[in-house]
Nucleic acid binder design. Structure first.
Lengths: 238, 238
DNA sequence: CGGACATTTCGGTATCTGCCGAAACATGGT
DNA sequence: ACCATGTTTCGGCAGATACCGAAATGTCCG
């Protein structure tokens, strides 16, 4: 069958995501970093040959983008829209009647702070969102969010150019947290917050995980800049 | 295989949507109305037996909800989250490089006004969104939206109880329009707008289509209440 | 009860495609 | 040049499942 380089249907896109191996790869890429074909193979639990086939399909369908670097090939989600679609599906996946996560003994770090495609998730993200709302910098009405003038000044001081963000993406979106069940800040603002925190050395990515490590300066920086309550780590959410 | 009544995975959910017949059924249900198994069979282009199997799977996975009524079974999307997921996928589906819709000679009506799950889409929806923004009733920052105090009063006068809306769903979300490429108002506010318009007899559903018919009183009502510009029908968007 | 209609169950077929082993290709280091 | 590593291509197999025809079940109507 002739391969039309463009135009997928909903069914075709869903069919691509609807395979365990491919879904695992996409989930791994939800961490926001580009991964090599080999790493993705390990995440998916299949051999490199099999992985290669999957990656070709995903790339041709424009769900992934590739970048060659020496003998490696780095794959990443092709666009924020892809991340959004996967997120929307994962909401349905968890939605089954009762399935409160079987505790994460080893994902304590993940619960504290992790990446969610391009922004921060976990309790840190909730604390930041609470702070921004409490201080009147951002107004959240569930799935929607808005940066106030006061918030714009605050973020500018923090080092985020709110003027430059007005591209196609929502300035401020919320994203349901996986561990806790409250929304945190996603969208362009969420991406900018993560970017700045990494740049300032407040957060560091961890190699083989989506977990984020909070540095010593980050401890202080977050607490003072965002006036976090002392107990923000324990707060189980609600 | 043991049927776990709960807990799907992302891959399982996507796999269900990733079949042409099932995707067609879901797309048909994006109109917001409940449809019978037979109607869905026609939409999907397969026989009733085949359809039955699909519907059982979709229902067990909690993507659809059923309601028996005599010898009919009415199926509808189980939750707004399902609609959101399908919408997110359809964004990716169209995203292929170039695929501007091959004109719709017969979907002129669809372009003008149609349902999108539970809210209004089409040029009417764009005109309404423009109006709400222009009058300062709603502030949109791309994917996010917010109802102002002034807007709250306006909507209350219109017959929408904005206090009662504060459930789990976003009060105001935007949704990328399929024909035109601009966001319109979805979420609870979008649903309330559609509901009120139907109740007041400003809009009427059409039997076998997602198109909405604008009644005579609707012509006048929309134009005066929302101060629509005279040419809102022609505006091709951008 | 019997006939029309909506929906489901059962059984069998055909197709699709995910998987791996083996081997080729590509790149970088020594 | 050689080898190690990362990735792709090829070929064949096996499991999953979408499809339909035939027939059963359920529901309304007269």
């Amino acid at each position: 069958m002739a391969n039309m380089a463009s135009g997928n249907t909903v069914a075709e896109v869903a069919h691509l995501i609807g395979d365990a191996a491919r879904a695992n790869m996409l989930a791994a890429l939800m961490g926001g970093q580009a991964l090599t074909a080999g790493e993705l193979a390990r995440h998916a639990g299949v051999t490199p040959q099999t992985t290669s086939g999957h990656l070709i399909k995903l790339t041709e369908a424009r769900l992934l983008a590739v970048e060659r670097q020496g003998r490696h090939r780095y794959y990443r989600l092709a666009s924020p829209e892809v991340a959004q679609a996967i997120h929307a599906l994962s909401v349905l996946a968890v939605a089954g009647p009762k399935r409160h996560h079987p505790i994460g003994p080893k994902d304590a770090a993940l619960r504290l702070a992790r990446t969610c495609y391009d922004h921060i998730a976990g309790r840190l993200a909730l604390a930041l969102a609470d702070s921004l709302v409490r201080e009147g910098h951002v107004i959240l009405s569930d799935g929607a969010g808005l940066v106030t003038d006061c918030g714009r000044r605050f973020l500018t001081d923090f080092g985020i150019n709110t003027e430059a963000l007005h591209a196609r993406r929502p300035l401020c979106r919320t994203c349901l947290d996986w561990s806790e069940r409250r929304p945190h800040i996603a969208g362009q603002l969420g991406a900018a917050l993560l970017g700045n925190a990494l740049e300032q050395g407040w957060l560091m990515r961890t190699p083989e995980s989506r977990a984020l490590r909070i540095t010593r300066s980050g401890e202080i920086g977050f607490a003072t800049t965002f006036r976090l309550p002392l107990n923000w780590r324990e707060q189980p959410g609600r």
